Simulated assay, not measured.
Amino acid sequence: MAAVLTGDLVKSTALTSSDYQHTMSALTRQCEAIKARTGCLFEIFRGDGFQFVFEKPVDAVTAMLELKLYLNSQIDGLQVNCTQALATGSDAVIKATPGTSSGKVFVESGRALDEARSGEIVVRTPLAEQQIATGIICTQLSYILNRLSKKQADLLYHYIHLGFPLHQVLAEQQQTSRQNISERLKAAGGDLLEPFIDYVTNLKDDAG
């Protein structure tokens, strides 16, 4: 089983040359960190496009959310959005890089990205009967994430990056109260992230 995540930045051509270079450097660092943690393959291409290949779907969907929140919160002075599409399949032929690999799962991920609305996260499910519900869930979560402030995205990024720690852990890290963190996480939709990861990870890959 392989999970292929394909994405690109939104309106990168509107960035100044300096901001573009700063953004791409930050994106590369984050991709390298995800690779070090999961053992995935990744490649940045077409100027502002990127693609990952993961062995575990849970790593792929976690990275999808983490990348979106990272771009929205962790680059100094900038909030950069991205569109991403995830597909899973067992037919992948994995080579040294995503660009030299092949299989239907790569086609599905790329096609889903081409069909996605700007700034959305999309999951292409193995079974057609799962796609309607999955599409609605992704649309609603995208709506919420795309309306976060930089501070809200920063909080959610650390929440997912640290593996959904107790709220007290985040409170101590940010030198505030647990109640404040709990209220901020709820207002930002933080309670949706872990169930979304579980949902996508447990999608059936066959009719059985």
Rank of each mutant, 00 (worst) to 15 (best):
M1T: 14
A3W: 02
V4I: 14
V4C: 05
G7N: 06
G7K: 00
D8K: 03
D8F: 02
L9K: 01
V10Y: 02
K11G: 08
K11C: 10
K11F: 14
T13M: 04
T16K: 08
S18A: 15
D19N: 14
Y20L: 14
H22C: 09
T23Y: 02
T23E: 10
Q30P: 07
I34A: 06
K35Q: 12
T38K: 04
F42I: 00
F42V: 01
R46I: 07
G47H: 10
D48C: 06
G49E: 00
Q51R: 03
K56Y: 13
D59Q: 11
A60N: 03
V61A: 07
T62P: 10
L65P: 10
E66R: 14
Q74T: 03
D76E: 12
Q79S: 13
T83G: 04
A87N: 06
T88R: 04
T88S: 01
G89Q: 03
S90I: 11
D91I: 02
I94Q: 03
G99Y: 04
G103K: 07
G103L: 05
K104Y: 10
K104R: 12
V105G: 02
V105M: 05
V107D: 00
V107L: 07
V107R: 04
E108M: 07
G110V: 02
G110D: 07
R111H: 05
A112Q: 01
A112R: 09
L113W: 01
E115C: 01
G119K: 01
I121D: 00
P126S: 09
L127C: 08
L127R: 05
Q130G: 05
I132Y: 07
I136H: 00
C138D: 04
T139E: 03
S142G: 03
S142D: 01
Q152S: 13
A153H: 10
Y157I: 06
H158D: 13
I160S: 09
I160Y: 08
H161D: 13
H161F: 14
L170K: 09
E172P: 10
Q179V: 14
Q179L: 15
N180T: 13
E183R: 15
K186H: 15
D191A: 14
L193K: 00
L193H: 06
E194A: 13
E194T: 11
E194L: 15
P195K: 11
D198E: 14
D198F: 12
V200G: 00
V200S: 01
V200W: 03
N202Q: 10
D206N: 13
